[in-house]
Structure formats: C-alpha cells, structure tokens
C-alpha cells in the first residue's frame, strides 16, 4: 500500500488549470523526486497535499486515510512534514527554540502551558542536531543564520515533527556546491528510514539521491521511472532537459 496516493488531483482557478488529473503513488521508505520546469505545478501539488490549497477535484490518501479537505495542522499531525521553497524558520527564536517548537508531541495549548521540559533532553533531539550539523549554533537567533544553515534548520524542524512523510520543496535552492554536497549527505542518511518527496531543479543532486523520478509538465504527469530512463526519455528531453536542462546538467 502506498504511503501517499494522489488520485486524479486537479486544481483550477476559474478557467486556468494548474494541476490537471495528476496521480502518483509513493511507497513507504521511498525517496521520490518531483521534477518539472517552472510552472509545472510542483509547488501547487505540495500545497494540495499539505492542505494549504483546496482541491478542485480528485482525492489524496495518506497512510490509508483520505486527507482531502483537511486543515493544514490536521494533516501535519497525521505525519506530513513540509519544508518550504523559501526557507521558513522563526527568525526571532534561537535555533534550539525553533527545534523545540517543531517538536509537536502535544497540540493542546493548555498542556503546553504546563510543559517546561526541554526537547533538548531527548535522544531524538541530539541525533537531529547532529544530522543537520547545527550543534554549535543552538543558542543563535535563527535570523542570523546563513542561507544554507537556515535550510538545514528547517530540515531539522521537519524531522523534529517525527513525520511519516517528508515533503521537501527545493532543499538546495540558493546553496553553494559545498552546501549542496552536505545536504545530499543528509538525504542519504534519511533515505530508507523515512519516506520523502523532494521537489528539485538541480539534476546532479537528483541523480545523487533519487530512487524514482516523477516529471510534471503543465500540471500533468509527463513521465515516471528511474533517473536513467527519465534522462533518455524523448518527451522529457523536449520539454525540460532539452530547453532548460542543459544548463543544470553541465
């Protein structure tokens, strides 16, 4: 059974269709890359899965449950973690505080008023801090982190939620080569233990991490398969690799 199943998902604004009858299945433990040129509908698909936007048609099943039409926090609580395209962290809180907020073991405000413990005591916390390499920065205000560090902090926050499914929207955007390398190492360690869907533009990064690649074009499914097949697929080359891909693929 799939961890995440999209069945004929459609999103339309008046007469303009952004995502059209899009279906895909992600099985547990898989790392799926979602590719496609700008405007293909990748981020919209992420928004639809996480409840940020409402579907115009179709349905989404996560871990055996129909999550269509649920609210953002309900979907998140079921175990869907999301990293945004533009890194979103709490800039006025420290790195440690950001990770503690992300530790969502209790959703109830009144229970949290009586909670003074620190997530820092848990084994999970140390492992995640170690994984994203922010140990020396725990006391730093998140607004003062470098771009790469902010991206890693957000990955750490998503992990603190202990989600069954991680959605990563362009995790390497704006990173230097060195930072990209470190990020692919992080993904390498997540792979297998977690189910991941990664939206990415960077071909060499995708080649490094992906099991299966799904390619979107103009809101529809264009192709799906292992990276080797996708790279030689003539339709994909035409719309994506052929036009934009050369630059990225150099």
């Amino acid at each position: 059974m799939g961890m995440l199943e999209l069945h004929g998902v459609t999103k339309a604004y008046d007469d303009f269709t952004v995502v059209e009858s899009f279906s895909f299945d992600v099985i547990e433990g898989e790392l799926r890359c979602l590719l496609g040129p700008n405007g293909a509908g990748k981020s919209t698909t992420m928004d639809l899965i996480t409840g940020r936007q409402k579907l115009s048609g179709g349905k989404i099943v996560f871990d055996g449950r129909d999550i269509t039409g649920m609210k953002e926090h309900e979907i998140a609580r079921l175990g869907v973690g999301r990293k945004f395209q533009v890194p979103a962290v709490f800039r006025e809180l420290t790195v440690r505080e950001n990770l503690e907020v992300a530790d969502n073991r209790s959703p109830n405000p009144f229970a949290n008023m009586r909670w003074f413990g620190r997530s820092g005591d848990s084994r999970n916390f140390d492992q995640i801090v170690d994984l994203v390499g922010l140990g020396p920065r725990l006391g730093t205000q998140a607004g003062f982190l470098s771009h790469g560090e902010t991206q890693w902090l957000e990955i750490g926050m998503v992990l603190m939620q202990n989600p069954k499914l991680l959605l990563m929207d362009e995790p390497t955007a704006g990173m230097t080569e060195h930072e990209k390398h470190k990020t692919s190492e992080i993904f390498g360690r997540l792979k297998g233990n977690h189910t991941l869907v990664v939206v990415e533009h960077d071909m060499s990064f995708v080649r490094e991490i992906a099991d299966v690649v799904t390619v979107m074009h103009l809101g529809k499914l264009l192709a799906e398969g292992p990276m080797k097949e996708i790279e030689v697929n003539s339709r994909v080359r035409e719309v994506y690799l052929g036009s934009e891909g050369n630059g990225h693929d150099a």
Binding site: F90, L93, V101, P107
Partner: peptide
C-alpha cells in the same frame, strides 16, 4: 514559545501541526 513562533510566522506553525 509556540505563541512567539506564531508571531514570527503563523503559516509555518500550522505546518508544524498546531492549531
């Protein structure tokens, strides 16, 4: 802490799983 996180970025807090 959560209340201050909401002040910083309410949208982000929703995706952490808080109402």
């Amino acid at each position: 802490l959560i209340i201050q996180a909401i002040r910083d970025d309410a949208e982000r807090v929703r995706f952490v799983g808080y109402n």
